[in-house]
């Protein structure tokens, strides 16, 4: 039955007949997808390359490799300029601390709320969830003026703590909505088992439900961290003092000055300092970020 014989399997099995049939829609689609993908990769290359270039190189040779600063033996000149002169170094530190504190606080406040809304069987909880979710649709511009006036009265404008409060509060609708999805998907049995074992409700929440919803909590942390890292409008309104600038805020202020002084190299290095940490985070966590962001919408 089995004769010894060398048979080499094809490297790629044949596709189903007809699946590679020409279709105008498919052809257009493939072209657009190809162009789009290539453009995004080009953008990334341009950004990284330009952050090492002189303004002349940036505009006369946008797709070439950086040469000038390398030739002078100061390849990181733009980054040094942005970090020192434009204050991005300090802003980086401020942003990391602020964003970390906010993300943790948001999840700490939202997780119990999401749990209460989904798993306690309280009548009207679904309606309340919807009310909170509606908050996602409120543009920041709608609340920013009263918030500014109100916080100014208690001297919390031009203050990182004031911005912290605003960030945490305005991130709650999205995070609660995201986490209700996670808590709702957890099985009832474990909670019931814990109750039978005599664990108190508070204890059940902390030792059973929170660990189970860990994936959701981490997703919430990451998504909020990305959102707040990139947030600009509120930081412009609530921070005026250079010493308290976040990265996006610093970039915003630096933009005008840099254009004026033709300090484009330093500016693009500044952009890179804002973008690249998120890019690294994205490369490491792409799947979680994407599923997290689409979870609320896809459900």
């Amino acid at each position: 039955m089995s004769t010894v014989e060398l048979r080499r399997p094809p490297r790629r099995p044949k596709p189903a007949p007809g699946s590679k049939r020409f279709s105008p829609l498919r052809a257009v689609g493939l072209t657009v997808v190809g162009l789009f993908t290539a453009f995004n990769l080009l953008v990334l290359y341009w950004l990284v390359a330009a952050s090492f270039k002189t303004p002349v190189e940036i505009f006369t040779d946008p797709f070439g490799l950086p040469k000038h600063w390398f030739a002078l033996g100061k390849p990181f000149r733009n980054f040094a300029y942005a970090w020192e002169q434009a204050g991005f170094g300090h802003a980086f530190l401020v942003t990391v601390l602020l964003v970390a504190a906010c993300a943790v606080a948001i999840v700490l406040i939202s997780a119990p709320a999401a749990y209460a809304l989904t798993r306690l069987g309280v009548r009207g909880a679904n309606g309340l969830t919807n009310v909170i979710a509606i908050g996602m649709g409120v543009p920041f511009q709608t609340v920013v003026i009263p918030l500014f006036v109100g916080l100014a009265k208690i001297h919390l404008t031009n203050s990182l703590f004031g911005l912290f409060l605003v960030y945490v509060a305005l991130s709650i609708p999205f995070t609660v909505f995201l986490l209700t999805g996670f808590f709702r998907s957890l099985p009832d049995e474990l909670e019931e088992a814990a109750a039978i074992d005599g664990a108190s409700p508070v204890r059940t929440f902390f030792s059973i439900m929170l660990p189970l919803a860990r994936g959701g909590l981490i997703t919430g942390l990451i998504l909020n961290a990305i959102g707040l890292w990139n947030e600009t409008l509120l930081s412009i309104v609530f921070l005026q003092d250079n010493a308290q600038f976040t990265l996006a805020r610093a970039l915003f202020t630096f933009y005008g000055a840099a254009s004026y002084q033709s300090e484009y190299g330093g500016l693009i290095a500044g952009v890179a300092i804002v973008v690249l940490p998120m890019l690294v985070l994205y490369i490491v966590l792409a799947r979680r970020i994407i599923t997290g962001l689409t979870l609320g919408a896809g459900k």
Binding site: T232, V274, V275, Y282, A286
Partner: peptide, 13 residues
């Protein structure tokens, strides 16, 4: 993943 990339960049950037 490549197409998604602009969404993690700050709008100001």
């Amino acid at each position: 993943a490549i197409l998604f990339f602009p969404n993690i960049v700050a709008p100001v950037a």
